[in-house]
Computed example of a mutant assay.
Amino acid sequence: MQEQAQTVLFLCTGNSCRSVISEATFNHLAPAGLKAISAGSHPAGQLHPRAVSLLASKGISTEGYFSKSWNDLPVTPDVVVTVCGSAAGETCPAYLGPVTRTHWGVDDPGHVVGTEEEIDTAFERTYGIIRARIEAFLALPLAGLANDKAALKAELDKIGRITT
């Protein structure tokens, strides 16, 4: 990628759980020059309390994070990653800008119904998938892919198939 800071937008519908877990985890792991933001097409207006607790348990700060609309982005992202899952016929919003787009679908743990243990397990699984994908993203030779958008997209699409 270029010398300037690169911004990755994690996008879903509510911007309260998966996209925020992605944003916070990415920013926790990323080197200088890479930054994540998150947004939703129909923001919930608040972060999911279990997502905040999960991130805190991993030592990842959520200070300054909030549920926001994609209409309020502070910058135009370089890469957009949709994280909507297929459960309950969920439809991902389509970001319409001149950016590299990829889909890393993961089901929303905020919609899991069950025992406390089952819900916690769903959140841990979601975090594990997201973290593995982010680690794979950060391991890419980004400088080498900077001038080959098709190759970058192909690599990002492969990462979206990582399940653990």
Score class of each variant (00 low, 15 high):
62 T>I: 14
63 E>K: 14
64 G>M: 12
66 F>T: 14
67 S>L: 12
67 S>D: 07
68 K>E: 07
68 K>H: 04
69 S>A: 10
69 S>H: 06
69 S>Y: 05
71 N>I: 11
71 N>K: 15
74 P>H: 13
74 P>T: 13
74 P>G: 09
75 V>E: 15
75 V>C: 11
76 T>Y: 01
76 T>A: 14
76 T>W: 03
77 P>C: 11
81 V>T: 04
82 T>P: 02
82 T>I: 12
83 V>L: 11
85 G>C: 07
88 A>R: 12
88 A>N: 13
89 G>Y: 06
93 P>H: 06
93 P>A: 10
94 A>V: 15
94 A>F: 12
94 A>W: 08
96 L>N: 09
99 V>D: 04
101 R>N: 11
101 R>C: 09
102 T>I: 10
102 T>A: 15
103 H>I: 11
104 W>Q: 04
105 G>V: 08
106 V>Q: 03
106 V>H: 03
107 D>I: 04
108 D>E: 07
109 P>A: 08
111 H>D: 06
112 V>I: 13
113 V>F: 04
114 G>Q: 06
114 G>M: 08
115 T>I: 07
116 E>A: 14
117 E>I: 06
117 E>C: 00
118 E>W: 02
118 E>F: 02
121 T>E: 14
121 T>W: 02
122 A>P: 01
123 F>I: 09
124 E>G: 01
129 I>N: 00
130 I>R: 00
131 R>C: 08
131 R>Q: 13
131 R>M: 04
132 A>E: 10
133 R>H: 05
134 I>W: 01
135 E>S: 05
137 F>R: 01
137 F>A: 06
137 F>G: 00
137 F>Y: 11
